[in-house]
Amino acid sequence: MNDDSRPAAVRAQNVVKSFGSGDTQVTVLKGIDLDVYLGELLLLVGESGGGKTTLLSAIAGILDIDDGQIEVLGVPLSGLPSSKRTSFRGQTMGFIYQQFNLLPALTAAENVAVPLFIQKMRRPEALRRARAMLERVGLADRTEFVPKNLSGGQQQRVAIARALINEPRLLICDEPTAALDGPNGQKIMQLLREVGRSPDRCVIVVTHDSRIFHFGDRMANLTDGRIVNIEHIPQEGTA
């Protein structure tokens, strides 16, 4: 699957992951080979239960794999102890979830600042940078709102700001538009597209939403634990 000369942000080789044991053992990932390059937005699609979220968790270093190897930005994740992996994740990755996973008690600015709090940045500075980031995603007038007072699209934009505040090189998105209506989903994907175009970053998006396929650079189809095909998506004006 290594069909590109660009540097790989993520390199998965023969990744195998099973759950359960004995007769009830289910192999979810059956030898995945996948490279994701800097400067691209990769869409990961496929039927439900095909292993997309499992692969995403493995790439994030959240889930241990049974066999194979995953390198993120040149670092083999399976070789890192759990605490180092957690720290590496905090420094290099950003996450966007289907359900946003904002902390309900915190304001939008505080939510965005959480990754900076984790890095032990002082609160006033963290909040200043969070407000600036919220301005970038078009929420300058919502910085002190708690999530319940924001619309779904606004909440997802807060989640994106939170994911970007640490300037992560790898952005992992799980169904980022599933809880949004069409126009809001398009806006969110536009934002992610801009992030993905940055030459030192890449974005992986798991999605079922065919309305956003055109935002991707490539689309990998994961079915029954295997990548069945990867296709380049023609960009507007380049097809």
Binding site: T86, Q91, F95, N101, P104, V114, I118
Partner: peptide
């Protein structure tokens, strides 16, 4: 919420 913090890199 704790899971989200853990995913974002908060140590146990």
């Amino acid at each position: 919420q704790f899971g989200a913090l853990k995913a974002m890199g908060t140590s146990t």
